[in-house]
Computed example of a mutant assay.
Amino acid sequence: MTIVFRVPADGAERVGFAYSPAMEAVLSLHVLVEPKHHPVQHGWVRAMRRLSPALKREIEAFAYAVRSYFPEFLFPRPTGGLRDFREELAALRTADPDLIRLEFAVPLLTPWPDDDGGGRDPRLLHRPDLRERLRALALRDSDPAMAAMLLDDPRALLERFLDMLERYWREAFEDEWARIEPDLAAGVSEAGQQIARSGLYGMLRGLWPEVRSDHRAERFWLERPHDHEVVIGADDTLLLAPSTYVWPHVRVNCDGPWPLGLVFPVSSIAREARPRIPPARLVGILRALADDTRLRALRLIAERPRSTQELAPLVGVSEAALSKHLRVMADADLLERRREGYYVLYRIVPGQVAGLTPGLESFLRHDDDPDDPDGRRHDRPARSD
Rank of each mutant, 00 (worst) to 15 (best):
R294G: 15
R6F: 04
R304G: 14
L55D: 02
D175F: 04
D183W: 13
K56L: 07
R101N: 01
E303W: 10
E24P: 03
L356G: 12
I195P: 06
A61R: 12
R14L: 11
R170T: 13
M1Y: 13
D235Y: 09
V250F: 00
L162G: 02
K324D: 12
A354W: 10
E319Q: 13
A185M: 06
R86I: 04
T308W: 10
D292P: 15
M203G: 06
P265A: 07
A54T: 07
R86C: 03
R276N: 11
A9R: 15
R133Q: 15
H126T: 11
F161K: 07
P305M: 12
R271S: 13
S362Y: 14
H249L: 14
Q41N: 07
R83S: 05
S68L: 11
V4T: 15
A91D: 13
S323N: 06
L360S: 09
A54I: 03
L102W: 01
R179K: 05
N253F: 10
T79H: 13
V15N: 08
P373K: 10
H249D: 06
H226G: 02
G206D: 09
A25Q: 11
R216A: 09
G187K: 00
L356Q: 08
D153A: 15
F220M: 00
L300I: 13
L356P: 12
L239Y: 08
P305T: 11
F62S: 02
P111N: 06
S267R: 13
A302Q: 14
I348Q: 13
A54D: 10
V283L: 15
L360D: 06
L322T: 07
D235K: 12
I59G: 09
E58N: 08
T244Y: 12
Y245N: 01
Q309F: 09
P275Q: 07
S198T: 09
H325R: 10
D175N: 06
E336F: 15
R160N: 11
L92W: 03
G118I: 05
G187F: 00
Y346T: 10
M329H: 06
R287Q: 13
H249I: 02
L360G: 04
P259S: 06
A270F: 06
L222G: 00
R296I: 14
L82H: 14
S142D: 11
R205H: 09
V250W: 03
P313S: 05
L184Y: 06
A156F: 00
R377S: 11
P350M: 11
A312P: 08
G355N: 14
E58Q: 14
V211L: 01
A178R: 14
T293F: 12
T110P: 04
P257G: 06
R83K: 14
L74V: 01
P209T: 08
R14S: 05
G256I: 02
T79F: 10
E171A: 00
Q352I: 10
I232S: 10
G233C: 11
R327I: 05
S68H: 10
R376M: 03
W112Y: 07
A302M: 14
W112H: 01
H38A: 01
L334G: 03
L108M: 05
A273I: 05
A105R: 00
A147N: 08
D175L: 08
